[in-house]
Structure formats: structure tokens, C-alpha cells
């Protein structure tokens, strides 16, 4: 599924400019627990989370993330968005809950990442 299709499906707001909307996303994982995310991410992953602190961006130094979808309308502060821009990490935000966001993407054909 292309990143642009994900933005449309989630009626999402793009937080990092100059997003590559053609970028192909192969799987996703959803969690609000940092250790879970680290433990379960074994391949490049689109992360769905409600966490907006700097550590959610820092995670992308440790594991390979396609980007982060913030759920429940969460939006990180400008300095945290800048951390993502520095890392070429796409950020988008949707007003949908984690459950609904996951459901929409799964039904659109985006599978769960291998854990």
C-alpha cells in the first residue's frame, strides 16, 4: 500500500512536509508500549501509536520504521516533528482511534508485520 493511499484512507494530516507519497508500505504494527514495539519489529514497519514523546522518534534510530501514524488526533510538538524531519521519517496524524485506524488499514490490504 502506498503512503499516499494511507493518508487518504485515514483522512490524515501530514506533519512532515515533502512526504514521498509513492513510498510503498509493506506492513504495520500498533502499540503504545516502547518495549513491545522494539520486541516485535523485525522488518521495516509502519508504526501506529498514541505516544508523542521524543522517544517514539528515537525508536527509528534502533529499528527500521517506514513512518509513524499518530492516532486519536495526537500531534507531537514542533521540536519532535523536527527530530523526524532530521531522520527523513514521515509523520502523519489521524483523528481515528488505534482500533479503527488498524481496521481501516487492514481492510485496505495492509498486513500485520511479522513479530
Amino acid at each position: 500500500m502506498k503512503l499516499g493511499e494511507i493518508v487518504t484512507a485515514l483522512d490524515a494530516e501530514v506533519l512532515t512536509e515533502n512526504l514521498d507519497l509513492e513510498k510503498e508500505i509493506s506492513c504495520a504494527f500498533a502499540s503504545d508500549l516502547i518495549s513491545d514495539i522494539l520486541m516485535c519489529t523485525k522488518e521495516p514497519t509502519l508504526l501506529l501509536s498514541g505516544l508523542t514523546n521524543p522517544q517514539i522518534i528515537r525508536l527509528s534510530d534502533m529499528i527500521e520504521l517506514f513512518g509513524i501514524v499518530f492516532v486519536r488526533g495526537k500531534k507531537p510538538s514542533a521540536d519532535i516533528i523536527q527530530m523526524a524531519i532530521d531522520r527523513d521519517l514521515p509523520l502523519i496524524t489521524t483523528k481515528y482511534t488505534m482500533y479503527k485506524t488498524s481496521g481501516i488499514l487492514f481492510n485496505s490490504g495492509l498486513p500485520s508485520c511479522k513479530i
Binding site: 508500549l33 522494539l38 501509536s49
Partner: peptide, 15 residues
């Protein structure tokens, strides 16, 4: 609140 404290830190290190 930061997303830590799941009690998986040391087990995850060991793994």
C-alpha cells in the same frame, strides 16, 4: 506515560 514500564526491559536485553 512515556510508554515505558511494561516490565520487558531486562527480558528484552537478555533476548
Amino acid at each position: 506515560e512515556m510508554g515505558f514500564g511494561a516490565g520487558l526491559g531486562l527480558p528484552n536485553i537478555k533476548k
